[in-house]
Computed example of a mutant assay.
Amino acid sequence: MTRLRTAILISGRGSNMDALIAAAKDPSFPAEIALVLSNRPDAPGLAKAKAAGVATAAVDHKIYAGREEFERSVQIVLETYRIQFICLAGFMRMFTPWFVGRWGGRMLNVHPALLPAYRGLDTHERALADGVKIHGATVHFVAPEMDEGPIVAQAAVPVLDEDTPQTLAARVLMQEHLIYPMALRLVASGAVRVEGNRVLGAPTAQETALIVPDAAAAPRRIS
């Protein structure tokens, strides 16, 4: 089996990176994590990836005059490692249309909300302020616009009366760790296809609920 050479892009500690690396350790997983790249040389996730035996690289965005100049250097690194697919995992940079165009249909992102609701930052605070009863996480293909693109997988998380942004974030993150590897498996294996803004062949919400544990359960402590 030829496995899809995948790079994970991070800016911080990379907890979703951990989940993807762990899933890809299974030889039957259709993608291999061939590189972890960060725009921050001091990102804690780089050390974790290196300890897991994954190649790492850093391209410091601060030394570049503009976004496209930074992206062209990132592109050179990706080509050097013969990367075929990208997973964004807490990568805190918006890409230009130039970069997104080069990786169209070959780049996933995970977002801590049920898109198209709550694009952008502070999703948990905004969900609580609005009084919603269901929150969650989304894995989607990347489009030039922020937090848009065809949706591969979503997981719903009930909002509890006693929730704070921190407790809600912790439960949502648990679901991210489950649906992101699942989404990468579906895409890398060719089990799904994109038609317009829809991903066909992806699990329904009911099927996803059978795959992931109870989203209302108390999460483990996240360091």
Rank of each mutant, 00 (worst) to 15 (best):
A137G: 06
R198I: 03
P41A: 01
A34P: 04
V187I: 07
V152T: 05
I179Q: 08
D130K: 12
L9M: 15
A34S: 15
D18L: 05
A129Y: 06
I211R: 12
P116G: 06
T138R: 08
R5H: 11
W103S: 09
Y180A: 10
A217R: 14
A31E: 10
T138Q: 10
V36H: 05
P150W: 12
G120A: 06
G131R: 08
S73W: 00
H61A: 12
A19V: 06
V59E: 03
A153Q: 12
V212K: 02
S28D: 15
A51I: 01
A137C: 15
P165T: 10
R106D: 04
R185C: 01
P97S: 04
I179E: 01
T6E: 02
F99D: 02
D26G: 06
Y64S: 01
T6H: 01
Q84R: 08
T80S: 13
Y118G: 09
A23D: 08
N109M: 08
V192C: 07
M146Q: 09
G66K: 06
M107Q: 07
L35I: 10
R221N: 02
G120D: 10
D122T: 07
F70Y: 15
V100G: 04
A113R: 03
G53R: 09
S28G: 11
I222S: 00
A169V: 09
S15F: 07
G136L: 05
I83G: 01
L173V: 05
V36R: 05
Q84I: 03
I10G: 08
Y81K: 04
R185A: 09
D163M: 13
P213Q: 05
V159W: 11
H61L: 04
A47C: 11
K25R: 15
